[in-house]
Computed example of a mutant assay.
Amino acid sequence: MGWLAVGDGYEVALVEGRVAARATSGRAAGRQLKSLPKVLKDHPEVERLRRFAEWLDRHAAACVAQVDTWMVSALPVPTELVVRVWPDEAWQSALRDLVVVGDDPDEVGFLRGVTDSGELRVVDLDGETVRLSPRTVTLPHPVLLTDLDDLREFAAELGIVQRVEQIHRATWRRPADLDGKATQVSEFAGGSFPTRSALVARATSLGYRVSGARATCRVRDGAHTVEAAVWIGEPWDYQASTGPLSWHGPDGRTLRLADVGPVAWSEGMRMAAALYAGREIEEETGA
C-alpha cells in the first residue's frame, strides 16, 4: 500500500501493520516519523487505516486457523484452491513451508510456492525442487509422517519456520500394550489449579472449548469426528484439578482406547499435557 496524503504536509500508510506518517515538506520531508503527529490521530483517513489493519490481523488469524484445521484433520485440499489463494500474503504466510503430500505417498516435501501454470513448487528430502500438480494435496498431521525426524532435520538445515505448527508439533503415539477394555488415560490427571476459573482460562487461552465439566477438542480422525475430553470439574466447583482424558465418538459414546485413531490420540494427549503444564507446583523447602 502506498502513502496517502492527509491534511497539509503529511502522508500516512500502513507499515508493518501500524499506521505511520511522514512529512512532505520541510527538513524532514520524505522521512518516516517516529510517532503519529497529534493533528493526525483523529483524521478520518488514519481511522480508516486503523480499521483496515485490524481487518488484516483478523484475516491473517483466520487463514492460520483454517490451515491448522486442514492439517490436524488431514483433509485433502484442492490444488487449485492453494494456487488461487497463494497471492494473498496472509494465506501464503500460513501455507508456506508446510509439508504437503501429493497423489503418491512418496511425493513429500515443503511447499515453497506455486507456478503460473498452476503447479506447486515443493522441496523434497533430497533437496530437489519438484513440481506437483495433483488434483488434491494433504497437509499431514505430523503423527502420520513416517519421515518426521528426517523432515525436522532438513527443516533445521533450511532454516524453515512454519507459521502453522506442523513438524514441530508435540505428538504422542498410542502404546501397543493398552488394556483392551480401558476407556481413560490418567497420565495428566491431578494437576491442581487455585480455582476452576483459572483452569477454564488456561483451556480457552489454548484454543480449547469448555463444555460443562470438560475441556474438549474435536478432531477428524479418518472418516469420523472424534472428541477428546479432559475432566476439569463441575462449574460450581471452586478449586479444580485436571482429571482423566477420554475420547467420544459422533454419537457421544465413550471409545475404548484401542479404537482411538492416531491423530485423535495425539491431539487428545497434547491437550491434556498442555492443561497439566499450567498446574500449581509446590516449592520444596530445604532441610
Score class of each variant (00 low, 15 high):
residue 234 E to Y: 06
residue 247 W to Q: 00
residue 40 L to M: 04
residue 286 G to P: 09
residue 234 E to A: 12
residue 60 A to C: 04
residue 2 G to M: 01
residue 287 A to L: 06
residue 207 G to V: 04
residue 38 K to D: 14
residue 278 G to D: 01
residue 284 E to D: 11
residue 102 G to L: 05
residue 94 A to N: 05
residue 104 D to R: 11
residue 146 T to M: 15
residue 49 L to W: 00
residue 2 G to T: 07
residue 116 D to F: 00
residue 110 F to Y: 15
residue 63 C to E: 10
residue 53 A to P: 09
residue 177 D to C: 08
residue 262 P to G: 04
residue 248 H to I: 00
residue 210 V to S: 06
residue 243 G to C: 08
residue 191 G to L: 02
residue 47 E to N: 06
residue 44 P to T: 01
residue 7 G to D: 10
residue 61 A to E: 14
residue 159 G to I: 08
residue 83 V to W: 06
residue 188 F to M: 04
residue 84 R to D: 14
residue 216 T to Y: 00
residue 200 V to M: 08
residue 184 Q to S: 06
residue 8 D to M: 10
residue 160 I to G: 10
residue 218 R to P: 10
residue 229 A to Q: 02
residue 209 R to Q: 12
residue 86 W to G: 04
residue 240 A to H: 10
residue 56 L to V: 05
residue 281 I to E: 14
residue 134 P to C: 00
residue 235 P to T: 00
residue 72 V to P: 13
residue 143 V to R: 13
residue 108 V to L: 11
residue 113 G to M: 07
residue 59 H to D: 13
residue 271 M to T: 05
residue 180 G to D: 14
residue 51 R to I: 00
residue 119 E to M: 10
residue 73 S to Q: 14
residue 61 A to S: 14
residue 256 R to V: 00
residue 77 V to W: 09
residue 138 T to L: 03
residue 79 T to N: 07
residue 222 G to W: 10
residue 58 R to E: 13
residue 154 F to V: 00
residue 186 S to I: 00
residue 6 V to A: 03
residue 195 T to K: 12
residue 126 D to Q: 15
residue 118 G to H: 03
residue 265 W to M: 04
residue 233 G to V: 02
residue 66 Q to A: 12
residue 102 G to M: 04
residue 115 T to I: 05
residue 6 V to L: 04
residue 250 P to L: 08
residue 98 L to P: 11
residue 235 P to E: 01
residue 159 G to P: 12
residue 235 P to I: 02
residue 243 G to Q: 07
residue 167 I to N: 10
residue 191 G to R: 03
residue 107 E to S: 13
residue 272 A to E: 01
residue 274 A to C: 05
residue 8 D to I: 09
residue 39 V to L: 15
residue 278 G to I: 00
residue 92 Q to F: 01
residue 90 A to Q: 13
residue 161 V to K: 08
residue 282 E to I: 13
residue 53 A to L: 07
residue 262 P to W: 01
residue 221 D to S: 15
residue 123 V to K: 15
residue 148 L to Q: 13
residue 53 A to W: 09
residue 265 W to P: 09
residue 32 Q to G: 09
residue 149 D to E: 13
residue 274 A to F: 02
residue 202 R to C: 06
residue 155 A to T: 07
residue 223 A to D: 15
residue 213 A to C: 01
residue 240 A to I: 03
residue 200 V to Y: 05
residue 232 I to N: 01
residue 214 R to M: 04
residue 101 V to I: 14
residue 80 E to K: 09
residue 197 S to D: 15
residue 166 Q to W: 08
residue 188 F to V: 01
residue 93 S to R: 15
residue 282 E to A: 14
residue 185 V to G: 03
residue 89 E to L: 12
residue 169 R to H: 12
residue 140 P to N: 11
residue 23 A to W: 01
residue 26 G to F: 10
residue 147 D to N: 14
residue 144 L to W: 14
residue 170 A to E: 15
residue 202 R to M: 09
residue 20 A to T: 06
residue 266 S to M: 09
residue 283 E to D: 13
residue 287 A to V: 07
residue 277 A to T: 00
residue 114 V to E: 06
residue 204 T to A: 05
residue 116 D to G: 08
residue 194 P to G: 01
residue 91 W to M: 13
residue 178 L to W: 02
residue 108 V to S: 06
residue 150 D to P: 03
residue 167 I to R: 11
residue 118 G to R: 03
